[in-house]
């Protein structure tokens, strides 16, 4: 490939006290690429996301986004540059209607930058975005309190909040976990559409089958280290991966 990477990490490491959560992880990602990150529980996948988005400060290593070093910036500035993430544990505002949960991302200074200083009618935009991720408008799901929605909708809400920020890089942390096959099948086209639009996407997943179907490339993590990087087929052939997954993966 000839395009320059949109995201580049070099030697990212993080120690929590004595725990080596992440060790010397380097990779890069091109625009329009969908990168899957897999690995057993506790292998450092979420930590990797937290270091890129700077929710957690790296012990060492750098992150470069669109050619600019970002690993010293506070998280809110990183978001403004165009990286949006979802959280593994979704924590919506349970007492608010789903569409009101969209107001905070729509209030983002990033929206103001992109729209040339104007916000527009946030409620209307919120409803449109939710419809895009599968909140049926006729059924008025978007008006229900987030606390009353099933997990499938909460995950879609989480995705819609990321889409609202119109980022160039999405980082989706276990978006599919806890969802039924049908629910996953309904979200996959949304993700493919984002990729078609040229967005770079990192997906952390335990649902390997679904991930392999859409990912261009897979990184495998184990004990905080990157143990394989390549196409799904290549990665699953690797000896290190087989060893990591033997016993660890029995789902």
């Amino acid at each position: 490939m000839t395009t320059s990477p949109i995201l580049q990490t070099t030697g990212l490491s993080k120690n929590f006290g004595g725990v080596r959560a992440l060790h010397n992880v380097s990779f890069d990602l091109r625009p329009g690429e969908l990168l899957g990150v897999i690995g057993p529980n506790g292998s450092g996948k979420t930590t990797l996301v937290n270091l890129i988005t700077r929710f957690v400060k790296p012990s060492s290593g750098t992150v470069t986004f669109k050619g600019k070093k970002i690993s010293h910036l506070p998280p809110y500035k990183i978001v403004r540059l165009g990286i949006a993430r979802t959280f593994q544990m979704v924590k919506p505002f349970y007492h608010l209607p789903a569409y009101k949960n969209m107001i905070i991302p729509l209030y983002s200074p990033r929206m103001k930058q992109l729209a040339g200083g104007k916000y527009g009618d946030r409620d209307a935009v919120a409803l449109d975005l939710l419809e895009e991720v599968g909140f049926e408008r006729d059924a008025h799901v978007a008006y229900k309190a987030a606390g009353a929605l099933p997990q499938g909708y909460l995950k879609r809400l989480e995705l819609a909040k990321a889409i609202a920020l119109q980022p160039d890089l999405f980082i989706l942390d276990e978006l599919f976990s806890g969802l039924s096959l049908a629910e996953v099948a309904s979200i996959v086209p949304i993700i493919e559409k984002l990729r078609m639009a040229g967005k770079a996407i990192i997906m952390i997943e335990h649902r390997l089958k679904e991930l392999f179907r859409i990912a261009d490339r897979i990184i495998v993590m184990n004990y905080g280290e990157k143990i394989a990087d390549g196409s799904a087929a290549e990665v699953m052939e690797s000896e290190a991966v087989k060893r990591a997954y033997l016993g660890a993966e029995d789902e």
């Binding site: 988005t53 929710f55 998280p75 809110y76 500035k77 978001v79 403004r80 949006a84 993430r85 959280f87 924590k91 919506p92 505002f93 608010l96 009101k100 107001i103 905070i104 991302p105 209030y107 983002s108 200074p109 990033r110 909040k161 920020l165």
Partner: peptide, 17 residues
């Protein structure tokens, strides 16, 4: 809503930039 969001769940407010 943004102010109250900081109280409820500041992580998601930061995550909006």
């Amino acid at each position: 809503l943004v102010l109250k969001g900081i109280n409820d769940n500041d992580r998601s407010v930061i995550n909006a930039g």
